[in-house]
Amino acid sequence: LVSGTNDPGSYWRMPVDLVSTRPLTGSLTLTQGRSSVIVPETDAAVFTPRRRALAASGPGTGVPVVFVGYGDGSVLGDAMAGAVAVMLADPGRDRARREALFAQRATAVVTVLPDAGALTRVRMAGSRERLQLASEDQDTLSAYVTDAALAEAVGAHRWESYKADAQAPDFAPLEINLAITLQASAERREFTSSNLVGRIPGSAPGAGAILLLAHWDHLGECRPPEEIDHFCNGAADNASGLAAMLELSRRLKAGGPLGRDIYVLATTAEEGGLLGARAFAKAAPLPLGSIIAAFNFDMVAIAPEASPVGFIGRGQTPLDQVILDYLARSGRELGEQDLADSFVQ
């Protein structure tokens, strides 16, 4: 096994720059005319990945408040730049719409949720530590408010009228007469982790490469500190996968040279959102198009013997028949395809 980084200055490690953020404070103030209210935490939540973020918008500020309904404001083009966008929640599409609005340089995005229960779920998810690649770090300010709280500020009749208009196929975003002030802060930590990359050289240059990969990180502290054992040790997820990958690498190396190069990759920050794998894809030491097949080892041998096999990625590579033929020869059953497909990102 030799270095796979293609970097003489870093033989085994490929640095992965990461940013960790954890929300600290947040507040949302709505002003209609002379009436101003700080929305209580039971009806609003505000998040930012920055140490501190503040935005004031509405009449007299030069920052418009634009109601985009169920859209993403793209019909306005550059007109969204600098605005505070207010959008109605549409589960399954909200993240993409929010990203589209920030891509148009919206100052902040306020998502209107149907009720306090939906807000509680958002708050629980948003209050956890978030890990992301430093190269993907964005200066964003996101707020969530209940439908009832916004209706009270705007006026119930007017708000129902806005929502009804948003249902129309030809709906166009409109500026609304509402002032919104948002403030949020977060604990922020920037640090560098590493992917580890080795290579078993092949005997046929230009024949492509095989990638073996497994993530080396785990959850760490995953239970309340007062519990005696508050660490998730990661024996299954993913020491088992690393062990299987390394043992396979040892056997492949002992068997003599193969035609293709075999890359052995241990990725960091998988639990944070496949971040190490994404960093590898962004700066791979070989052309990504030269990778003939990739085999990911994660939580190996925890299912009962002879369990159905989940085929993740079926229909996306030329390897389908190879895998199906092997399952047939070994007498294994194919598991539920919809479940397997749900793991594809």
Results as ranks from 00 to 15, higher is better:
E136N: 09
V145W: 02
R51W: 06
L182N: 05
A340E: 01
R51K: 12
L334W: 04
L246V: 06
L196I: 15
A306C: 08
E190K: 04
S135G: 03
E175N: 03
L131N: 09
G206W: 15
V112H: 01
A103I: 05
G313I: 03
G77L: 02
A125P: 03
D298P: 05
A186W: 01
G33Q: 06
F171E: 06
N195R: 05
T107I: 01
L339M: 03
P308Y: 12
I210N: 09
Q337D: 15
A209N: 11
L252W: 05
Y263A: 09
S3L: 15
T146E: 07
P91Q: 11
P23Y: 01
N6C: 11
L339T: 12
T29F: 08
A294N: 11
T31C: 12
G71L: 06
R121P: 07
S185Q: 08
S342V: 12
M299I: 15
V68P: 00
R130P: 01
A340T: 06
I210C: 07
F191L: 09
I38K: 12
M299K: 12
E99P: 00
H218N: 11
K282E: 08
L88T: 00
D170I: 07
A281N: 01
A156R: 12
M80H: 07
E270R: 10
T25L: 06
M80S: 00
R22K: 13
L286S: 10
